[in-house]
């Protein structure tokens, strides 16, 4: 199992030597996960808030559906997205297959249920007295919503981190939709899959460690933000 040790050395070498292939994969990963996170947070937080805060008919069913979608396998999402953006598919004319935005669409679908479900849970678990408190201090309906969202910020941050973890680490969508094209859509995870297939276990480990390093950076930044 000396490839573990070699993997660690390789990771350091790749980072220090500025290996262009590695940095291209890192850039692709960061870019695509940023797109996906931005889109899923922008859509997921309001939807999750509505699901957790408002009482409307069909809410339980919607909640059940979202919770079920948490278990969507990434390869399945990849296939679904492929079916839509393949040139033969309904969105084929947009030319999204084998592009980073294409992957981002799939990853958005992956992250969206996570963001919605966890935001809804965070909002639901707010103290029942919060509403009374805000109303009693004179908040109108809009101010009540804004303050509730802000009070739930720690839960929502946790939702974002959780979704980010899923997006960063998924390989099924990136492989299926992105095609693992070198210099273009090769992400860290598809690169790991490729290196593993090639039997370059040390290289796979190295890339895995780099992914972990990025995840650490993001998480650390978030927890700093949370500390404020």
């Amino acid at each position: 199992m000396d490839f573990l040790y070699h993997g660690l050395l390789e990771a350091i070498r790749l980072l220090l030597s500025g290996d262009p292939e590695t940095y291209s994969a890192v850039a692709a990963t960061l870019k695509v996960s940023s797109y996906a996170m931005a889109a899923s947070l922008l859509m997921g937080i309001p939807l999750g808030f509505v699901l957790g805060h408002l009482r409307f008919p069909g809410r339980r069913q919607a909640r059940l559906a979202v919770d079920t979608l948490l278990s969507l396998p990434t390869v399945f999402i990849g296939l679904m997205v492929y079916a839509f953006i393949s040139r033969q598919g309904p969105l084929g004319h947009m030319g999204l297959l084998f592009t980073l935005p294409g992957i981002a669409i799939g990853q958005t679908l992956l992250a969206l249920p996570v963001v919605i479900a966890l935001t809804a849970t965070a909002v639901e678990s707010m103290d029942a007295n919060l509403r009374v408190t805000l109303r009693s201090l004179g908040a109108n309906r809009r101010q009540l919503m804004r303050a509730t969202l802000w009070e739930a910020r720690h839960g929502i941050l946790a939702a974002a981190l959780n979704a980010y973890g899923r997006v960063m680490t998924e390989v099924g969508i990136s492989m299926m939709v992105g095609g693992n094209i070198k210099w273009h859509t090769r992400t860290i995870t598809t690169a790991i899959a490729l290196e593993t297939n090639k039997g370059q276990f040390a290289m796979g480990i190295a890339l895995g460690l780099i992914l972990l390093l990025i995840a650490f950076g993001v998480t650390a930044a978030m927890s700093l933000l949370r500390g404020k």
């Binding site: 030319g95 935005p101 804004r146």
Partner: peptide, 30 residues
């Protein structure tokens, strides 16, 4: 209250983001 945009603002941001994403894909047909 900072850090939370109104829904309308969020929607505009979303559109802008989608435009950015797909715009890049459309523009650069190499």
């Amino acid at each position: 209250m900072k850090g939370t945009g109104s829904p309308a603002k969020g929607f505009i941001l979303l559109i802008a983001l989608l435009a950015l994403m797909f715009g890049a894909a459309w523009a650069a047909e190499p």
